[in-house]
Design a binder for these strands. Structure first.
Lengths: 357, 357
DNA sequence: TGTCAACACGAAAACGTTTTCGCTAAGAAT
DNA sequence: ATTCTTAGCGAAAACGTTTTCGTGTTGACA
């Protein structure tokens, strides 16, 4: 077991100074051709690679992006990570992942841990608990320390930073409008409680689409699921609620659900009740994931393009990081002007499948 | 924008030495109570936190685990990550994620990048291309540099390291045996090409279960899918192959599939053909994911307990990392004996759902 | 012969820690 | 009055880099 070789060891072995080795390896013309050759050959032989940690300390930047998300076992978030990782790698960055598990405290702990030098900037999506508490001081504190943040999906106006979102309102609006086009007269909404911003926006999209088409929103046709309970492990509860909902509203001929789980569950329940999809009832879900694609019938969804979100977020962050470098180089005082932030909107897209006509 | 405060700044501000500040903050009794109080108060006020990078450099360890997996948009891998992250966090470690994207080259590049000081050890699952090439030098090189590796799921005998796997053979064996118990007479196998070790083992389990019960394996009942093509985006190809397969073997009354996608697709096709599940044909899949749970009918599967795999892998790695520390402390020469490695087998479990009787 | 430039290299600082060792002054012991 | 402890603190090294600023040697030129 031979530990990685260092400049110091090479220097000692070849009887030159550390500086000479460093310069030779970076092809500085301060060093004679002979010496350079000798050193480079030796370094190659021993497979020398500069120690990243030492570089980070010296350069005061780590070339690492911190990702902080509520949950990783979730198709949307993993596609976002994939997108981030793609451009990060291409641009010479690594990603380090923290999971808040939807907990306010874990979010803070993770941020503080990573903010102490481990990363150059954050890409994150806010935990439910944080949204509920509406306490965003840790984000602002981090930004004030000079660590830029890019938020995606679950964002919040109270924090001034770059954001990448999908147009939840418009996505929902279009989905519902599409159902109307397909001749649905009584469109139900299955949604979450309101505190998650995206849920609220999607609900608004639903409401306004109805209004726009002179249809009255019937509060009986709106089912709000309490997602404080772990739905994944309480599928029966969810299905029972939906069954109850469908039975007491037999006139429903279209369903818009704010996520694919609700949509797929609704289809399952509808089939059990004896309804034909899409003949008796049509269904559209938000968030295009594996479930939608493989359900039977396959589910028409509003795709959020998670990977693209990740890619844009990474580009925004890295652009800002490298702009900072340039500023310093140009002797701009970094406090001279307030930076202006971008809110980037990724277009949603309706993917038509078998659950609609 | 105020950058994070350092020991040096505190020292200057309070007109003491850096050493004094450091000691005061760690409650060393070398420092008087007065000074300690003063320093701690000041540090708290300015929210001092030690710089992780500096600590890493000094301690020559980063308290970070590198995860290297073929793909993140995959339920099994994300559950494993969740498991790793859980115990890593509990034990004071962070995780940094690299994606090989099933590519040999990307696997190597990622490893080299992280191995240069960024991480203390790896937890990884081998990419398909690497398995195909059977070139494992980068793993051995990393281990020789003193960086421990724990492999999971896709492992290989040629590399000497800790491993966490499920008993693919036994899992498959049990699944098929369960189908036999449920009175299936002609059990089909839908599998992948043989080079991925887990696929091979699961196929063997299938074969031996048949043999054990005096049933003859009929090669016509084995469908090998070429997974070099991106199945997720070529679902129709997959379904066509399965349809063809089922039609030319109308006697099939049970299907064992080596992953849930194949299983769910098989169910979909079977339903289209007019077969009733589980009355005409019963189906069991390997790998318990979201698809299985939400398919209709829901799919009986062999659960791999991904999260547990991740937890065990993390524990194995951290145990070894901390054992190394202890060895050095005790003046053991680290090359004195060859360490012995553990292969940990996680029990699989059949989760009965609606696709079997 | 004396001056100067160019060349080739080394010393040292810096990034932010922790820790070992040494130093000073005050009080205790002889 | 002299020596010994000990409390309280600082200097410096170390982790592995990069980079700035010397410095000595050589050869050219006046």
């Amino acid at each position: 077991m031979k530990r990685k070789i260092t400049l110091k060891q090479i220097a000692k072995e070849l009887d030159v100074s550390i500086s000479t080795v460093s310069k030779a390896l970076s092809n500085s013309k301060e060093i004679s051709e002979d010496t350079t050759q000798k050193i480079q050959a030796f370094a190659k032989l021993y497979n020398y690679r500069p120690n990243n940690i030492a570089l980070s300390l010296k350069n005061r930047k780590t070339k690492t992006i911190g990702i902080l998300i509520p949950e990783i076992v979730h198709h949307f978030f993993s596609t976002v990570i994939r997108g981030i990782e793609r451009v990060a790698n291409r641009r010479g960055y690594n990603v380090i992942v923290g999971l808040s598990n939807e907990s306010f405290t874990k979010e803070i702990i993770n941020m503080e841990l990573l903010a102490n030098g481990s990363i150059d900037g954050f890409i994150l999506s806010i935990s439910k608990e944080t949204l509920l508490k509406q306490d965003y001081h840790h984000f602002n504190a981090t930004i004030n320390q000079g660590i830029p943040i890019v938020m995606f999906d679950r964002v919040v106006n109270e924090v001034d930073c770059d954001k990448v979102i999908v147009d939840d309102f418009k996505g929902a609006f279009n989905a519902v409008e599409s159902l109307i086009d397909k001749n649905c007269k009584n469109i139900a909404l299955i949604t979450t409680m309101d505190y998650v911003s995206v849920g609220k926006l999607r609900t608004q999209g639903y409401l306004e689409a109805l209004e726009e088409h002179k249809m009255v929103a019937d509060s009986n046709l709106i089912l709000k699921i309490d997602d404080s309970l772990d739905v994944e492990n309480n599928l029966d509860v969810l299905e029972a609620e939906i069954a109850q909902f469908l039975k007491s509203n037999p006139n429903i001929d279209g369903i818009f659900a704010v996520n694919e789980l609700y949509a797929v569950s609704a289809m399952k329940v509808a089939k059990k009740i004896g309804l034909q999809i899409p003949d008796d009832i049509q269904v559209i879900g938000f968030t295009d994931g594996v479930l939608s694609k493989h359900a039977s019938p396959s589910l028409t969804t509003v795709s959020q393009h998670g990977q693209k979100i990740g890619e844009q977020a990474a580009n925004l962050l890295i652009d800002r990081l490298e702009a900072e470098d340039a500023e310093i180089d140009q002797y701009f005082s970094s406090s001279s002007r307030k930076p202006s932030y971008i809110k980037m909107v990724i277009e949603t897209e309706i993917i038509e499948r078998e659950s609609t006509k």
